[in-house]
Structures are given as C-alpha cells and as structure tokens.
Design a protein around this nucleic acid. Structure first.
Length: 201
DNA sequence: CCCGTGATTTAT
DNA sequence: TAAATCACGGGG
C-alpha cells in the first residue's frame, strides 16, 4: 500500500497544526538512504506578524527567518541555545510568515539509527519527545532550511487518512517556552494527542 | 532548580 | 562592535 504525500500546507497554521497530528513525518538519511519516521503527536501554531511569540512578529525579516516567508510546505529550520535545531513547516501563502513547529513524534521506523543519533536517550519515549530531540534523532539541521516538503526526497509528510485525529482526541494548551510573549504566551496554540506517551510534557 | 552553548538579534 | 537573547535538554 502506497502513501500519498501530505501537501495541504496552504491553510492557516492552526488548521495545519491540528491536521498534522496523526500523520507521518519521514526523513531519508543521506548516503545510506535509510528511512526514519514517526507519527506527529505534538505541534504548535505560530501566527505571523500579530503573534508576539513568532519569529515574524511585526513583520520582522532577517537572514535566519527568511524561509518562513516562503509558500506553505517549505521547511523553516533554525538553530538556538547554541546547540538545538527546530523544525517548522511553513503554512499559508508566500509572504504570510506563519508556520507550525513540530514538537514531538512517536518513532515508527529506524529506531536503531535514532538511538545512535541520540546517545543520551534510553527509552523510546525519550527519543523524539521534544522539538530538539526529534531534530537530533532525525539529524535535521540548517542545511535543510528552506527545502520544499512537497517535492523533497529527504524530508516529507505522508498522509495517513485512517489516522486523522478526531477533534475530541486533540488537546489544545498554551505553547511551551514563550513566556516572554505576554498574552500570546497563554493562547491555546499547542496541540497534542492526549493519549500519547511521546509528547514533550 | 540551574546551566551549557554559540548563532542571531538588538542595542549602542 | 558589544551585549542580550533564546520555539531546549539534561542533570540535580
């Protein structure tokens, strides 16, 4: 059975953040062609120039966040805290500056390789249960910033229609690590599968 | 709780 | 140019 690629990134980031839950994030390793994947169980929506927690707040445009202004479906990957990479998927239309942060996946394929990439992790629930954990496990970095998940052979999302998550299983809560953003820190823009042991917290 | 870590952003 | 910041993770 073949899997269709998820391409519906043109919607608003809240819709995309909800729809991505239950879908499969796939990473093909360079050289080996090894396939690593996991089911997306936690996301956050970043709403653009109005959103004080968003890198494009007030229309800010810098070298780092440039790819956030690409059309929906492109990757925005950035580096922070001197050691961590974050994977976002741009949503909406070109110039909107909106995106969804992928915060956690439930590992599915290539667990052995993921454990090698994450020396410190001992349990499956520690492998990809955080935004920087999953980029480490899947070995994603700024060299992949700006790629198009609609056509990239190395990073994409597979649509699993049967795993579309019913609204009642999705919990909405405040986003993590954005306390500096005032009222925007408290808006329920984090979405996760309430019954998954693979979420970040 | 605290701290490493260094690229990026922002203030001078 | 210098200082502050940071969508975090790991160890007490």
């Amino acid at each position: 059975m073949s899997c269709e690629r998820f391409r519906d990134f043109a919607a608003d980031p809240i819709t995309v953040a909800r729809r991505l839950l239950g879908q499969r994030l796939v990473r093909i390793m360079p050289r080996t062609g090894k396939r690593l994947s996991g089911i997306i169980v936690e996301t956050e929506a970043y709403l653009g120039e109005e959103d004080a927690a968003c890198h494009t707040f007030n229309g800010r445009r810098t070298q780092r966040n440039n790819s956030m202004y690409l059309p929906g479906g492109h990757a925005y990957i950035y580096f922070t805290y001197g050691m961590h990479h974050m994977l976002n998927i741009v949503c909406g239309d070109e110039g909107d500056g909106v995106a969804v942060l992928i915060r956690a996946i439930e590992p599915e394929e290539g667990l052995e390789t993921m454990f090698k990439h994450r020396q410190r992790a001992n349990r499956e629930t520690d492998l990809c249960s955080g935004p920087a954990k999953l980029t480490q496990a899947l070995r994603l970095d700024r060299s992949l910033d700006g790629i198009d998940l609609g056509s990239s052979p190395v990073l994409f999302v597979e649509r699993l229609r049967s795993r579309m998550l019913p609204r009642r299983y999705i919990i909405a809560a405040p986003r993590i690590g954005v306390d500096y953003a005032g009222v925007w820190a408290r808006k329920p823009l984090r979405f996760f599968c309430g019954n998954s042991p693979h979420v970040s917290c």
